[in-house]
């Protein structure tokens, strides 16, 4: 079996973000982390590989040269077999271009499972897995909280509104990871050493024979949401009840 898994770099959600001068993205010295949902996807890929002998795992990052570091440290050091970096400028491409890159990669690599995060915590789009599934004509299971292979089917439990859904997919298929899928492991020292020697291919978008690399969605302006007006601290429950009744008039 072969699993293609994502390793996307995102800016640290706790860092202060500054809107860039052209008003269309962010700029400045931001710290980066691996997208948390990709950590879950990588952990899932490794667990499936451990449970099924002869599984090859391949991590994909799309972005600038810096992304390579996250493929090595976030995926290869944890145990993923090899990596692919596709060079692209993330400030101008949309989820759709990312999906078409994955489509191209899947046509090249022919994985049985494409394992992505349910969303990237910078753009918060939650689209890539579903888009690429449709482009490839593959079934999908988004928001996965449990993944199990039984025969030629993958049984996936999904976190949906109102409860938990279970569906069965025939491979090849796309799965997107939710946070409760697993606890991502830490890379061991041995893993970090080994990762340095693991293969990491670098590709350009042109290498993938994509029909088009034009984004369909463009950011025209960014802004900061209006903050909330400062509230008050109350000293007692009585005071709280009084305010809720006479000032906020919500009880």
């Amino acid at each position: 079996m072969k699993i293609l898994v994502s390793a996307k770099r995102v800016s640290d959600p706790n860092a202060r973000l500054n809107i860039s001068r052209d008003g269309k993205w962010i700029e400045g010295d931001v710290e980066y982390i691996l997208n948390p949902f990709c950590e879950n996807a990588i952990e899932c890929a490794l667990q499936l590989a451990e449970a099924h002998d002869g599984t090859e795992t391949v991590a994909v990052g799309i972005g600038d040269d810096e992304t390579a570091r996250f493929i090595r440290q976030g995926a290869l050091a944890r145990g993923v077999d090899r990596g692919i970096l596709v060079e692209a400028d993330e400030a101008v491409i949309d989820s759709d271009v990312i999906a078409r890159i994955y489509q191209g990669l899947c046509e090249r690599e022919r994985p049985d499972i494409l394992l992505l995060g349910k969303q990237a915590i910078d753009g918060d789009s939650n689209q890539v897995g579903q888009l690429v599934a449709e482009y490839l004509g593959w079934p999908q299971a988004t928001f996965a909280s449990k993944v199990e292979i039984q025969g030629d089917e993958v049984i996936v439990q999904r976190e949906v509104d109102g409860g938990l859904e279970t569906i069965a997919l025939t491979m090849p298929c796309v799965i997107t990871a939710d946070l409760r899928l697993n606890e991502p492991r830490y890379a061991s020292l041995a893993g970090i050493m080994k990762a340095k020697k693991k293969p990491l291919d670098e590709l350009e978008m042109d290498d993938l024979d994509l029909d088009s690399t034009d984004p369909k969605v463009r950011v025209v302006a960014m802004s900061t949401p209006a903050g909330r007006k400062a509230g008050v601290m109350v000293k007692t429950v009585d005071e709280l009840v009084h305010k809720l009744k006479t000032e906020a008039r919500v009880v």
Partner: peptide
């Protein structure tokens, strides 16, 4: 916007708002 009606959407966990236009 100058480029017509844009869709406003929160990004970075709502720390910022992006106004996007769709070209298709």
């Amino acid at each position: 916007t100058k480029e017509g009606t844009a869709y406003r959407r929160p990004v970075w966990a709502g720390s910022l708002l992006a106004d996007v236009v769709i070209d298709s």
